[in-house]
Amino acid sequence: MRIFDPHIHMTSRTTDDYRAMYEAGVRALVEPSFWLGQPRTSPASFFDYFDALLGWEPFRASQYGIAHHCTLALNPKEANDPRCTPVLDALPRYLEKDGVVAVGEIGYDSMTPAEDHALAAQLQLAADHQLPALVHTPHRDKLAGLHRTIDVVRESNLPPEFVLLDHLNETTVEAAADSGCWAGFSIYPDTKMDEDRMVAILQNHGTEKMIVNSAADWGRSDPLKTRKVADAMLKAGFTEDDVDQVLWRNPVAFYGQSGRLQLDVAAPDPLHEGNSILRGGE
């Protein structure tokens, strides 16, 4: 089984996770830039983070046989902080880089005018750089936030098939599917979605343009949720081909619109299996 986790924050995870993910079948992932849990106070802090997503983290992933790509953006929360908004001026430089397969995470947190501006500006950046966009839907007031997101997407120069609406659930899947955008679901231990609810959504809405991710980060989360959804799908009677479509072909098709996916990472060196990253000082 081959698995593509289209949304996972590996910076917050250990090399044990990489190894377990590889063993579970994960061969590729996308790491969206997001809020660190601790507010940033300057654009330079974003740049160090972007550089890590373009340098160190892909190297770390490659040692475990996993292809790493990223999405870059000013995230919805920090779009409200004037100390951070100059990041928008630097994004054109970053969005030209290999390994950047979308603009994201963008979208709404509290639905403020500053978030309106950042979302519209970054949808335009995606159009300018021929990149898809990964759009976070808000945790609070989700359905209203989704409708407002879809309105902004419709007004943008980015076609809906270049947009992935993420963190959907039973209450938002219908409107998202009707918009023509791709539908993303984050499977969490407690919140958002679980694997059985996900299977029910796939039974009701089909497997086309449906994308499943773990969204694992520094909070309570599970980087193997993609595999658990695959297993739950098989148990519920979906075929191997259905699983491959949802867990591999769909994310490859969505992010592949960037023209920048490189999925040919070598298998991990058996000498390094179970060992730590070579540190140069160990």
């Binding site: 001026d89 430089r93 290999d98």
Partner: peptide, 22 residues
């Protein structure tokens, strides 16, 4: 100009692999 603006050739520097092959 923004302090973050780049000369055009530096943007091409980033895209070199996609344009000419990795």
């Amino acid at each position: 100009a923004s302090p973050y603006a780049s000369p055009p050739w530096e943007l091409r520097y980033a895209a070199a692999g996609r344009r000419c092959g990795p």
